[in-house]
C-alpha cells in the first residue's frame, strides 16, 4: 500500500482531477479547500500513516480520521472510493439525486467517522475518541484535519485546551493553513498568528511544515504512531488554497466557485493525468 514520493505526487494529482470532475459535473462544491488539503489526505491514506481496512470498516483497532473541515469532502471521497470504501463510479454522482455523497461528510457514507460540515466540531469529537481509547488502553490514533478558517471557532480552542490538559498524545490535529476563509484572507479579517504559539499554550507539541511536500508530510506523520510525545501533536501544514490549478491558487474567488467553460478546460489541462 505504501507509495513512494513520486507515486504520492501522482495520486495527489489524480485526487485533484477527480475533485475537478466531481465539482464541475455537480455544479457545486468547495474546490479551493479540497485542493489545499489533497496532499495531506494522500499522505495519510497512501503514505502508510493511517491504519485502516476498507474491507473491515468497523475494525475496532483502526485509526480514526475526522475531516473537521467537512466542506473539503470531495477530496476525501475520491480517496475513499479509490481505496474501495465505495464504488469509484459513485464519484460521478457526487451531490446528485440518489447519491450517497453529500456536500459534507456524514457517517452514513462508508469510511466517514463523524458528521462534519459545521466548523469547530471535529476536534472535540476526536478528543473524545482519543480519551476513550486511552481509557481502554487501545493503541489506535485519532487524526483530525482542520481548516485555518475553522480555527476562528471558539469550540476549536475548548477542545484544544481539553486535549492538552488530558495529555492526549494519541490525538493529532493537522491544520490546513491556506490562509483564506470564505470571502477574505485570514490576515485581513482575523489574523490567527502566532498560530503555533496558540497551540503550544494549550499544551500541544507543534510542527510547522509545507503541506504540499510529501517528503515533509511523511517525515512528520510517521511519528504519529511512535508515541514519542507526551502531548497531543498539531501539524500546521502551510498550503495554498486552490493548489494545483494556477489561476485558483491563493485566489479569493475559488472557495466554492465552479469552473466552467474556458476555466474548466484550462484546469483540466493543468491536472492532466
Amino acid at each position: 500500500m505504501q507509495k513512494n514520493i513520486l507515486e504520492l505526487e501522482q495520486k495527489s494529482r489524480w485526487v485533484r482531477r477527480q475533485v475537478l470532475e466531481m465539482i464541475s459535473s455537480a455544479g457545486k462544491g468547495h474546490i479551493g479547500g479540497a485542493f489545499s488539503c489533497a496532499d495531506i489526505l494522500v499522505a495519510l491514506y497512501y503514505g502508510g500513516i493511517l491504519r485502516f481496512d476498507s474491507t473491515n470498516k468497523e475494525s475496532p483497532g483502526r485509526d480514526r480520521f475526522i475531516l473537521s473541515k467537512g466542506h473539503s469532502a470531495a477530496s476525501l471521497y475520491a480517496v475513499l472510493a479509490d481505496l474501495g470504501y465505495f464504488a469509484l463510479s459513485e464519484l460521478e454522482n457526487y451531490q446528485k439525486e440518489t447519491s450517497i455523497l453529500r456536500g459534507h461528510p456524514d457517517r452514513k457514507i462508508p469510511g466517514i467517522e463523524a458528521d462534519t460540515g459545521s466548523l469547530g466540531h471535529g476536534l472535540g469529537i476526536g478528543a473524545g475518541i482519543a480519551l476513550g481509547a486511552k481509557m481502554d488502553a487501545k493503541d489506535f490514533i485519532t487524526c483530525v484535519l482542520l481548516g485555518d478558517g475553522e480555527c476562528c471557532e471558539g469550540s476549536v480552542w475548548e477542545a484544544a485546551m481539553f486535549a492538552g490538559h488530558h495529555k492526549l498524545n494519541n490525538l493529532v490535529a493537522i491544520v490546513d493553513r491556506n490562509g483564506i476563509c470564505v470571502t477574505d484572507f485570514l490576515k485581513d479579517c482575523l489574523d490567527l498568528e502566532p498560530l503555533d504559539k496558540k497551540w503550544v499554550s494549550c499544551g500541544w507539541d507543534v510542527v510547522v511544515i509545507d503541506g504540499h511536500s510529501h517528503q515533509e508530510l511523511l517525515s512528520v506523520c510517521k511519528q504519529f504512531h511512535n508515541k514519542l510525545g507526551k502531548r497531543p501533536l498539531v501539524v500546521i501544514a502551510n498550503t495554498v488554497k486552490g493548489k494545483g490549478v494556477s489561476f485558483m491558487e491563493g485566489n479569493l474567488d475559488w472557495h466554492h466557485s465552479v469552473p466552467r467553460g474556458e476555466d474548466l478546460e484550462r484546469a483540466k489541462k493543468e491536472l492532466e493525468l
Binding site: 463523524a114 472535540g124 469529537i125 480519551l131 476513550g132
Partner: peptide
C-alpha cells in the same frame, strides 16, 4: 474517579467529547 470528568465551563466541548466517547462505545 475514572468515570467522572469535570469538563470545566465548556459546554460545547462537553457535547463533542461525549460524542467522541460514545463513538468508542462509552
Amino acid at each position: 474517579p475514572s468515570q467522572f470528568i469535570n469538563m470545566a465551563v465548556a459546554e460545547q466541548n462537553m457535547v463533542s467529547i461525549a460524542a467522541g466517547l460514545s463513538l468508542v462505545d462509552k
